[in-house]
């Protein structure tokens, strides 16, 4: 087969995927107020961003939320993966199925079901409701990442540890945790990013007491163009990219 046709095609599709991102980054340095014409280089939108106190507050809120959601989901996700991998228990298939459903179901379905729950139990919508929701949708991704790591794991190691007198907890701490560490880090980073980027679920379960970045962006971009959003978007892109590279690097390094 012709070698150039597939390559040209791949290049073309990648171009399409990346042109909007490049445009956004370039326009974030645009001095023009209208947002469509090029008005020379400028950092004014970054400046405007930093001087916007509500925006900076939303940024911190988002970071804190992502940090805590990633940590909690990594913790619970790792334990879930370990339980699925090591224990036999009733309803294992059901547990697996529930995780699969969370991952596959449209975000909006998850969002309204959580909203219904929070209102039923009388939980004030804010940080706690956001945290519970974010941990829930991050969970399956962490479980999968850790399970993948565990599946290539030498089963004789935990048995050896047990023969040497370690109980379950000690064995987990000294044998399993070091093995799944790269997966834990990768899962944490993925959870962090998922939380930071979520719009759909957050729209439903957040309250006025805790404003987060994606929702603020959402309310800004619904009408017209806002040059500050270019700057903010660029910052978020760079941030996500660093996280992604970090997680891939951790996973690749651990394979060697």
């Amino acid at each position: 087969m012709n070698r150039w046709l597939p390559r040209t095609y791949l290049t073309l599709v990648y171009l399409l995927l990346y042109v909007p991102i490049v445009v956004l980054v370039v326009f974030s340095f645009n001095d023009s107020r209208t947002g469509y014409e090029w008005g020379g280089l400028s950092l004014r939108w970054y400046e405007a961003l930093l001087n916007n106190r509500a925006m900076v507050q939303a940024m911190w809120n988002s970071l804190w939320l992502a940090l805590s959601a990633a940590t909690v989901s990594t913790l619970i996700g790792a334990l879930t993966a370990l339980a699925l991998h090591r224990y036999r228990f009733r309803g294992k298939k059901v547990l697996n199925g529930m995780l699969f459903v969370v991952m596959m179901s449209p975000e909006i379905v998850l969002a309204i079901s959580l909203l219904a729950l929070f209102l039923l139990v009388g939980l004030q919508l804010g940080y706690v409701s956001l945290l519970l929701a974010h941990v829930t949708f991050c969970l399956p991704f962490v479980v999968i990442t850790v399970m993948a790591r565990l599946s290539g794991f030498d089963e004789r190691l935990p048995e050896a540890a047990r023969d040497l007198g370690a109980n379950d907890f000690t064995m987990t701490r000294t044998v399993l945790i070091p093995v799944i560490m790269p997966a834990l880090l990768a899962g944490w980073l993925l959870g962090f990013t998922l939380s930071l980027d979520d719009v759909v679920v957050s729209t439903f379960v957040s309250g006025p007491s805790y404003e987060i970045l994606p929702l603020r962006i959402y309310s800004m971009v619904r009408v017209g163009l806002k040059p500050e959003v270019n700057a903010l978007g660029t910052l978020l892109l760079v941030f996500s990219l660093v996280m992604l590279i970090l997680s891939q690097w951790i996973l690749l390094r651990s394979k060697r």
């Binding site: 995927l17 991102i21 962006i217």
Partner: peptide, 21 residues
């Protein structure tokens, strides 16, 4: 890797970028 970069980046921001175009 280049394919999953978008998965990790903010979908709202990318939708907004299309508006510029």
């Amino acid at each position: 890797f280049l394919l999953i970069v978008p998965f990790w980046t903010n979908s709202l921001v990318r939708t907004y970028a299309l508006k510029l175009i």
